[in-house]
Amino acid sequence: MPKRVFVSFDYDYDKSLKDLLIGQAKNPDSPLEVDDWSIKEAPYGGKAKARAVGVAIELRVAQEEGIDYFLLNGYSSQTGKKPTTAQADDKLYHWTWPNLETPVGGGR
Rank of each mutant, 00 (worst) to 15 (best):
S16V: 08
K81F: 04
E33Q: 13
E41N: 09
P43V: 08
E41R: 10
L59F: 03
Q78R: 13
L32M: 15
S38K: 05
G80D: 07
Q63K: 15
D12K: 02
N73Q: 09
S16P: 00
F9K: 02
V7Q: 03
D12M: 04
V7K: 01
T79W: 04
Y11S: 00
T85M: 05
Y75C: 05
K82D: 06
V34L: 10
A48F: 05
Y75T: 03
K82F: 09
K15Q: 09
K82W: 06
V61S: 02
K40R: 10
I67N: 11
I57A: 06
V53D: 08
L72T: 10
A48W: 09
N27H: 15
G74I: 07
K40G: 05
E33D: 14
S76V: 11
R60E: 12
A52W: 00
Q63G: 07
G80N: 10
T79Y: 05
V34Q: 09
W37P: 01
K49T: 02
L72V: 11
K18P: 03
G80W: 09
V7I: 06
D68K: 13
N73M: 07
G66W: 08
A56W: 00
A50E: 10
V61L: 07
K18T: 02
I39C: 03
P28M: 07
K15A: 07
D12I: 01
T84M: 09
F9H: 14
E41Q: 14
L32C: 15
N27Y: 11
G46A: 07
T79S: 10
D68H: 09
D36W: 08
Q78D: 06
A48K: 06
P83Y: 03
F9T: 03
D12N: 03
R51K: 09
L59M: 04
N27P: 00
N27V: 09
K82E: 04
D12G: 01
D68V: 01
L17S: 11
A62G: 03
L71S: 09
K81N: 07
A42L: 11
F9A: 03
K26V: 04
F70N: 10
D36N: 13
A42I: 08
W37H: 14
S8L: 05
E64C: 04
K15T: 08
